[in-house]
């Protein structure tokens, strides 16, 4: 239970950064932190006490394996997270070229 709470605290740090900061790069950093926290939380849910990695090998003493399903899906999620980060950073760089700033309060010519 304590580990889950710490994971949620990490998510909250990212959430605070996303909601409160005005710099686009800081917002992206908050997004990355929140994504790490969610991935960690899903892997934590599949952990088994005294388990070992889900790989078959001969002559093992420990028989319990951790849950392979969350690990497989988080593997997908990590790669998609990288793609999302690249796309958002690309858009941020275009905004910087257009407006000369990363401050979201000064980006106000979006109409028309």
């Amino acid at each position: 239970m304590g580990v889950y709470i710490l994971c949620l605290v990490l998510f909250s740090v990212g959430l605070y950064c996303m909601l409160r900061k005005r710099n686009i790069i800081k917002i992206i950093i908050g997004l990355i932190i929140a994504e790490y926290a969610v991935n960690l939380f899903i892997v934590l849910l599949g952990y088994r006490m005294e388990g070992r990695a889900p790989i078959y090998a001969a002559n093992q003493e420990i028989l319990n394996m951790v849950d392979p399903l969350p690990q497989a899906l988080v593997l997908t999620s990590i790669v998609i997270g990288l793609a999302i980060t690249a796309l958002v950073v690309g858009i941020a760089m275009r905004i910087y070229e257009r407006y000369g700033t990363f401050d979201i309060t000064r980006i106000n010519k979006l109409k028309g």
């Binding site: 934590l44 952990y47 070992r52 990695a53 790989i55 951790v66 690990q71 988080v74 990590i78 790669v79």
Partner: peptide, 9 residues
């Protein structure tokens, strides 16, 4: 957490 594939990725 015994997830070596994830660590590499």
């Amino acid at each position: 957490l015994k997830a070596p594939d994830l660590a590499i990725t």
